[in-house]
Simulated assay, not measured.
Amino acid sequence: MPSGKYLQKIDLTHPKYLQTLVENRRVFNLQNCELNVFESYQQAWRVPLTFSDFVITSMVRGKKIMHLLDKPSFDYLPGETVIVPADETMVIDFPEASADNPSQCIALAVDARYVTDTLQYLNSYYNNDPDEQHQWRLQFNQYHFENDTEITETINKIIRVCSSGDKAKNIFADLSLKELLIRLLQSQHLMQVKVESDTAGNHSRLHHVLHFIHQHLTERISMDHLSRKAYLSRNAFFKWFREQFGITPLEYINRERIKLAKQLLADPRQSVTSVSLQCGFSDVNYFVRLFKKAEGITPGSYQACLIK
């Protein structure tokens, strides 16, 4: 199924340059990171892979099954990203890989000092709200997630920079790498607060706002009303929300409504218009445009794919 969250395809290695048919590796070294492109052309099981640095991996094509951090195994598909701590062994299955259907994945190994410097930057300068003390850190209880548009675009940019011959590519890579780390941290923070808001709706201003959004997701949600819930002016509320989570309140609401819409569209008795209304959209055309932007396909086509 098409999706706007998929990474741009990377040219496959020419057959005569393949060194192995399982996890063939190409490496692009930069000052603070190392981009690896892995490809597999035949089925294989229980293949170990370990990096000495923190690593951000993202699927480009095909399918893997990941065994990681002593947790249950999971399917790893294009449009998804996994983060792994240093010296943690990934054990990988390739159940569908073949010459005609290879798997391809990037792994971005990031220097530990660079990660530490970025966390210090966030903790010192990016989030100084005295009412929302939050220690920015990587959380490995949230390590597998679906890409959003911003993360996809940033990873694509890093791939282009790392594989280019530009003399200034270390500078450009540093800027994009810092952006990617910050977006991943914000995404993790959002997921954590969202989970906590179900049981701790009044624990903090963040929990209170997200709890209210989810309680009223199918209704009209006024930005002015949300601002008052956060005890902030409208402009200050938008700035504060984006600093915390990397997206605007409206982008978050629409993202959650699209998730709900995908669940409802699984029922073939539901029409696109009905789903639009149930998800809080008063304009079905607006709903269709948002859905296509987020998923790369119209809601009608999405539903048709599900019920084939």
Rank of each mutant, 00 (worst) to 15 (best):
residue 147 N to Q: 04
residue 136 W to K: 06
residue 113 R to W: 11
residue 101 N to A: 15
residue 127 N to P: 09
residue 107 A to I: 05
residue 99 A to P: 12
residue 115 V to L: 09
residue 108 L to C: 06
residue 114 Y to R: 09
residue 141 N to R: 13
residue 97 A to H: 00
residue 156 N to R: 05
residue 122 L to C: 11
residue 115 V to T: 08
residue 157 K to M: 12
residue 143 Y to L: 08
residue 132 E to H: 05
residue 135 Q to T: 12
residue 124 S to L: 09
residue 116 T to Y: 14
residue 138 L to R: 04
residue 121 Y to F: 13
residue 123 N to D: 00
residue 156 N to L: 02
residue 135 Q to E: 14
residue 159 I to P: 03
residue 115 V to S: 06
residue 134 H to K: 12
residue 102 P to G: 07
residue 139 Q to T: 14
residue 119 L to D: 04
residue 157 K to C: 12
residue 99 A to H: 15
residue 97 A to T: 02
residue 113 R to H: 12
residue 129 D to K: 06
residue 156 N to Q: 03
residue 125 Y to V: 13
residue 134 H to C: 10
residue 129 D to H: 07
residue 128 N to W: 12
residue 157 K to E: 14
residue 102 P to R: 04
residue 147 N to H: 05
residue 138 L to G: 02
residue 125 Y to S: 13
residue 135 Q to C: 13
residue 134 H to F: 12
residue 151 I to D: 00
residue 132 E to N: 04
residue 121 Y to T: 11
residue 110 V to W: 01
residue 109 A to D: 00
residue 99 A to K: 15
residue 104 Q to R: 06
residue 148 D to I: 01
residue 113 R to A: 13
residue 130 P to I: 05
residue 149 T to P: 06
residue 138 L to M: 09
residue 156 N to V: 01
residue 105 C to V: 10
residue 114 Y to M: 09
residue 152 T to P: 07
residue 151 I to P: 00
residue 100 D to Q: 12
residue 125 Y to M: 14
residue 137 R to K: 11
residue 111 D to C: 08
residue 143 Y to G: 05
residue 118 T to E: 06
residue 114 Y to V: 08
residue 105 C to T: 10
residue 147 N to T: 00
residue 143 Y to P: 03
residue 127 N to W: 14
residue 133 Q to G: 15
residue 112 A to W: 07
residue 113 R to D: 14
residue 122 L to V: 09
residue 124 S to D: 11
residue 135 Q to Y: 14
residue 135 Q to H: 14
residue 135 Q to G: 13
residue 97 A to M: 00
residue 112 A to I: 08
residue 102 P to N: 07
